[in-house]
Simulated scan of single mutants.
Amino acid sequence: MEIADIENDVLCEKIINDINAVLTRDPDVTSFEIIPTLSYQNKSPVIHVEHNLGLESWCAKHVYDFSHKTILASKLSGSKYIYNDSLVKYLNCALLINPDVTTFWHIRRQLVEKNKLKIQKEFQFAALVLTKKPKASEAFAYRRWLYPFQSAESIDWSIEIGICDRCADKSLSNYHAWSHRQWVLERASHLLRSEILHTEKFIKKHISDYSCYHYRQFVLQTIFDICYYDKEQNEYNSLRDFINFYLVDGVSSVGEIIQTLLPNIDLNATNEDKLKCFLYCCNFAAYDIKFCDDLKNLFGFRESFENHRRASLRFIVENCMRFNSSVECYQQPPVSKLSKFDYSSNAFLMALKKSEGMLGEQHRKWCSLFLNFDYSDNSD
């Protein structure tokens, strides 16, 4: 080894020790960044200010290469590593600089299983990694892997939602953050109602990021699947206004809304909770249709507005068809039965079909394909 290489290794070791000292001394470090700098300036490249950790860019590659080399050198014959405290500091630096190395996360998993690392500290470290690279899929996967090691009573799912929110806000079209958020919601259904509010705020801030619209559709479908509804909600104003937009003879009461959407339903044979969930979810979807129209009026045409409006419209139409086609409303008929639905038996759907068909040839094609609207009759 040449003298220059030795000096480089000594310098890298010092920088790694400085980073490790910060992480040890300040357990509340909340962010990590690589700070652009042109060259070495005869001072420590590790910057620590108010719980924020930074590393000057000139040394990042050297530190990563040294950490990578040292971790691999700790590997014995076969697939085993020598597990000690020094290995952790190299893992920390390597993953902070480049969190996409699956092998390094796997080593951390083995350390957790051997009780060499504390669970809470690992959650904090994974969150720190995500501040630098909010699309780090391995960091999200590691967090999901850690959760079974915690007791149900100690889990605060809202913290996980907050991390997803920050990552999505920092890096748009963040598939990994929104997928992780779906995973959280599947285990924390009590957050459904608050997610309606949170996603609306996010959409207003990032109007063209369709990832959030898609997640909002997931929230709506999850609400419907678990038969959730707000027991204190007795009015469905968005759904009422949506119906009245298409019909000459308007509706006002909940009973009239039900009769308009589901003219053939037998209320005595209908599951009450499912019916209330249907109204609650359709009101949600109707609100989003108006929401997209309002955004379009403010910002002009966006593909995200159009796609989300169509998804909301499809939800209402398909579930009206299902309720009207089912012997019992909570039994979903096969798609083949929906495709043969007789629209003439539902004045509201006929009016909606006619009105939507006036929005252009492309939209008519979409309605034909996804809503089974037949526009072959020119009278429609």
Rank of each mutant, 00 (worst) to 15 (best):
I3F: 11
A4R: 11
N8I: 01
D9Q: 14
C12W: 02
C12E: 01
K14W: 13
K14G: 09
I16Q: 04
N20W: 09
S31M: 03
S31Q: 06
I35Q: 09
I35P: 02
V46H: 06
I47E: 12
E56W: 04
E56L: 06
W58F: 15
H62M: 14
Y64I: 02
K69C: 03
A73Y: 01
L76S: 11
Y81L: 11
S86K: 15
Y90A: 01
P99Y: 02
R108P: 09
R108C: 11
E113L: 14
N115T: 08
F123D: 00
F123A: 00
A127I: 04
L130Y: 07
K132T: 01
P134C: 06
S137V: 13
A141E: 12
R143Q: 14
R144M: 10
W145P: 06
W145N: 03
L146V: 06
Y147V: 15
Y147A: 00
S151A: 09
E153V: 08
I161M: 15
D169I: 05
K170V: 04
Q182H: 07
R187W: 03
S189I: 11
L191F: 15
L192W: 09
L192I: 15
I196R: 11
I203T: 04
S211T: 12
T222V: 03
F224S: 07
C227P: 00
C227I: 13
E235L: 12
S238F: 12
S238Y: 14
Y246V: 06
D249L: 07
I257G: 07
I258D: 06
N264T: 09
N264S: 13
D266L: 04
L267F: 00
N268V: 02
A269K: 13
K274S: 08
L275I: 08
C281Q: 05
C282H: 05
C282E: 10
A285D: 08
D288P: 01
D288I: 11
F291Q: 04
F291L: 06
D294I: 14
F299L: 01
S304E: 10
F305H: 15
R310K: 15
L313P: 01
L313A: 04
R314C: 04
V317Q: 06
R322Y: 01
F323W: 03
N324T: 11
N324K: 00
S326C: 10
Q331S: 14
Q332L: 12
P333V: 14
K340W: 02
D342S: 12
D342A: 12
S345R: 12
F348V: 05
A351Y: 04
A351F: 02
L352N: 05
E356P: 06
Q362Y: 07
H363A: 01
L369T: 11
F370I: 00
Y375F: 15
S376Y: 05
S376T: 12
D377I: 09
D380K: 10
D380S: 07
